[in-house]
Nucleic acid binder design. Structure first.
Lengths: 190, 190, 190, 190
DNA sequence: AATGAATGAGGGTTCATTCAT
DNA sequence: GATGAATGAACCCTCATTCAT
């Protein structure tokens, strides 16, 4: 009847997965009851692992940022790492409806967002410097711009499937890359 | 205490203003009680004018779109109307926290959003054609891209003042305009 | 635009008819808004004619009792007036869903009910005396019993059509008349 | 302050008792707040046990019908079970103001009423057959008549004490038994 | 006399959070 | 550590009633 001690730590993952699913389905304001029901655990188990609703979101966000950091590690020798990271950021955020929602919902002054922005800034710092150094992007691009671009990439509206959101993110990046000025599309020439 | 009946039609405006203020302060999920308190009217007066919370948002959205349509009318003879409208869109949307919230919160499949997108498409149709015709923007730009750009312009996060949001919107437009490819930024030279 | 003075008194009838219809459809607790909407008059017009919801019911009840009184007047020379009045009572009450509801809903101590009971007692007094005198009914029947029988006749549940309710009222009267003791049912032989 | 968890199952009974008391006092449309206040439990506890107001009434009804069924079981060898059950029905229903109200308020087409009628029909089936077989009641009495009689017995108006209602129910049954035709009162001879 | 917009108290219901087991 | 019943604050909304026109 009683779950083994080993299962205890597993509950965290089960809850995260349930939160991801429920928040994707019903938005980030879905009743937490739905999350515990989906996870198949008691209500207090949720509260022990994640005292607030935001703690859940924070954990989901952390998961995505950790993945992005890990990805950045594999790109340290690429000159175009900046663009590859934008691409990955767009795909990851656009692929997770809850993250898009959260990204939109919370105040920029929120400590969680502040922290996430710092992590993103750290991730993009070297790639940005390198892209400017190798002439792959305009020289006046700043980290603040990178964060703005991340916001813009996360801006596709709710709804639609993950595939549709990914398509929009790709087109958004394309437009950001080349601009809407008239000239041969960069993707065509690249 | 009781407002005169002559004010009847004015209540709609009072409520809209109150909703704008309250939603700006507390987000679009703020209790409607705050709105009626701010407006200084009875609760049912709100419900008579706006049966649902969404009806309030719809009215605010309608107000902004009407202003944009009116602005478009004054630009029919400008070749760069497309860019001026983007600019205005960014300023208006970014200047209204509730609209940004709403724009983000509702599902793209929502009829209200659908309708708004259609109105935006109508507004931008001629300016887009003209910009392409006069070589002011890349030839492959489509109305779908215009809507995507509008989304991206509305993507600055919540929080911060209107001035900060406007600054972000301007920079976002600048980046979209010229792209992040290396070359003399058109805006920088202008 | 303004209605003529003559129409003023007509409003009372219009409202009564509307109340009858609406209460039949939605029960006696239906919002009074429905009544004014159905009557096509302003809200305050209802309140001037019928200050309370109960005043409406009282008027409907009065209408039915007046009709019963009028009917009683035509039966003064009939020895079986008691039974004919029971029959008429059953048909009238059972034919009016609002009256059945009201009859059920209000407290017996309510002055309106008290008054109605007094009127009913007055109506039935002579017919009861005559029925006993001519041996048409058991000698120990009292006015209190008559009122009880009236209650029982109004006891068919809500729902069903007027025809069904009338059928039930008739059968109820039949059972009351002959009793359930075994003997040739008087109605069957008649 | 917080009730122990062991009381969990007891809450259902506490709430039923509270509902019985409150509905008896204020009618079946009394605010549910009164019920929870009387029961001394939290509001949501009521909603967990009885999702709708009707669920409360249904439970009260079920309790009364179960008692009637149990009583019927003790009367299987009595030839006059039909009359004893009528008597018991009158006493139980008439003794519970909420049940009388409910019995009156809901539509006959309501599934709850339908179900109750079926249970009553089942309870009375054998006793009716036996009463006819032993010549204790008129031979043309049908189950539909039994249900009508049950309605009539529940027809005493609201208000008055339980004792008064019981007295009325007894007199009603007496009248139904012997009818109002002239002959020695059956009770006098019995 | 007639209108219908305005009022605001009060009901139903949900849901984040606590806590006895 | 895990459970889920219990709590109660807060929200949405309706509707009886009033009152300026």
């Amino acid at each position: 009847m009683r779950k083994s001690r080993a299962d205890a730590t597993a509950h965290r993952e089960v809850l995260l997965a349930a939160a991801d699913a429920v928040f994707s389905e019903h938005g980030v304001t879905a009743p937490l009851d739905l999350v515990v029901a989906h996870a198949g655990v008691g209500r207090a188990t949720l509260y022990r692992n994640f005292p607030h609703r935001t703690a859940l979101m924070e954990a989901l966000l952390d998961r995505a940022l950790s993945a992005l950091e890990a990805h950045a590690m594999t790109l340290t020798d690429r000159e175009d790492a900046l663009f590859l990271l934008f691409e990955r950021f767009g795909q990851n955020i656009a692929g997770s409806a809850p993250l898009v929602d959260f990204w939109r919902a919370v105040d920029r002054a929120d400590p969680i967002v502040q922290s996430a922005r710092r992590r993103i800034a750290t991730i993009f710092k070297q790639p940005l410097r390198r892209a400017i150094g190798t002439g792959l992007c305009r020289a006046d691009l700043r980290i603040a711009d990178v964060l703005l671009i991340c916001n813009m990439l996360g801006a596709s509206l709710r709804g639609g499937g993950a595939a549709e959101r990914r398509g929009l993110a790709r087109r958004a990046l394309q437009l950001l890359h080349a601009g809407i000025d008239p000239r041969p599309a960069p993707d065509a020439s690249g």
